[in-house]
């Protein structure tokens, strides 16, 4: 039984789990798929069988002797953990993305369905602190919880420091930064204004030509705000990097445009691009969870550990010197079977 579950776990680490599958794999029903092994009938069946097995073993050894009780507790706690895990399926597991200053009252569940929280969460502020070497130091979300338009509670969320409101736990999971730039385009006669946000496509006055905003940086390699554009025409595409502080950069490197023509904002004739202002904002990514089975699992874990320690220290189990097989080196006595009541214990597990 233990090896069967081990093998199923092994399968679970070979096949990528829980993601989208393609080709022949997508035709396997989810309930028997190796790509979702931990929710498949194989795994759930093995878990159920283990519970039955443990329960039967416990019944067999239902005696009031001290070791019998420890064994009962030890194996019973595993059943409790599995039961708690199963209860957890009835819980909540969702995700919120809140742009700074905005509010959200619906979470997105793992299957993509919306879930009404019963209250509104507002992200008052999201801050990201960095170490000197650029590694992330802390992600902090200042949140307000609103009910009926009134603030009913506030919390500061950090990684490893969850918050709780109305029976739902909230976890700092991720963040997203979006940036956009105010740009102008001139063909010598007219001036055209546009807003450049990553992924946006803007048609140019010349027919068949459009620009695609590839990336927006608040600071590109210390040279200030910049935008990377892909100019697509009938003859293919070419890249153009537009810097806000291009005059300052050129003052330092007068031959910049000869070396890097793609940095010249007038290289795509007859147009000249300029970047005026850059704005960026954060959205915080928050996990929302409720697991009614977690307390059962916690109790099971503590009971298991306590009974494991008791078993280790119990005379007769063969681990500490004393009676039974736990003889200190050099000592000897006539007892042949070190633990008579251990026969068949979990034997077929």
């Amino acid at each position: 039984m233990l090896f069967t579950i081990s093998l199923l776990c092994l399968v679970g680490t070979i096949f990528p789990q829980g993601g989208h599958v393609h080709g022949w794999a997508a035709r396997i029903p989810r309930l028997i798929s190796p790509y979702d092994i931990f929710h498949s009938v194989w795994f759930l069946g093995a878990g159920l069988l283990l519970c039955v097995n443990l329960t039967l073993c416990m019944r067999k050894r239902l005696s009031l002797k001290r070791r019998g009780l420890i064994m009962l507790l030890l194996h019973g706690s595993i059943v409790l953990i599995i039961a708690g895990y199963a209860v957890g399926f009835a819980g909540l597991d969702g995700y919120l993305e809140i742009p700074q200053g905005s509010s959200v009252s619906q979470a997105v569940l793992k299957n993509g369905a919306p879930f009404d929280l019963g209250f509104t969460v507002r992200c008052d502020r999201f801050t990201m602190e960095l170490y000197e070497n650029g590694m992330p130091k802390e992600f902090v979300s200042d949140l307000s919880f609103l009910r009926g338009g009134r603030v009913d509670g506030q919390a500061q969320l950090r990684v490893n420091h969850p918050a709780r409101f109305s029976g739902i736990s909230l976890y700092q999971e991720s963040y997203r930064q979006s940036a956009w730039a105010d740009m102008t385009l001139s063909d010598g006669k007219r001036l055209m204004k546009f807003k450049a946000e990553q992924g946006e496509v803007i048609p140019l006055p010349s027919p068949g030509i459009q620009i695609r905003v590839e990336k927006v940086w608040s600071d590109l390699m210390g040279a200030g705000p910049a935008v990377k554009l892909l100019i697509e025409g009938p003859d293919g595409g070419s890249y153009l990097w537009v810097f806000r502080d291009i005059d300052t950069i050129r003052a330092r490197m007068p031959d910049l445009f000869e070396k890097m023509p793609a940095f010249d904002p007038s290289s795509f004739r007859p147009y000249t691009f300029s970047l005026h202002r850059l704005e960026s904002s954060y959205a915080t990514g928050i996990g929302v969870k409720r697991d009614p089975g977690a307390p059962l699992v916690a109790v099971g874990g503590v009971l298991f550990l306590v009974s494991l320690l008791l078993l280790f220290l119990a005379p007769g189990a063969g681990f500490v010197p004393g009676s039974g097989s736990g003889t200190a080196p050099g000592e000897s006595h006539g007892e042949k079977d070190p633990a008579p009541d251990a026969q068949g214990e979990g034997g077929r597990a």
Partner: peptide, 23 residues
Amino acid sequence: ETWALITWLVYAAVIHERIKGGR
């Protein structure tokens, strides 16, 4: 986590075999 569980299960089997046989 999954491999930690596999390791844990293998050693659970070692302990069961050890106690069952007494040696």
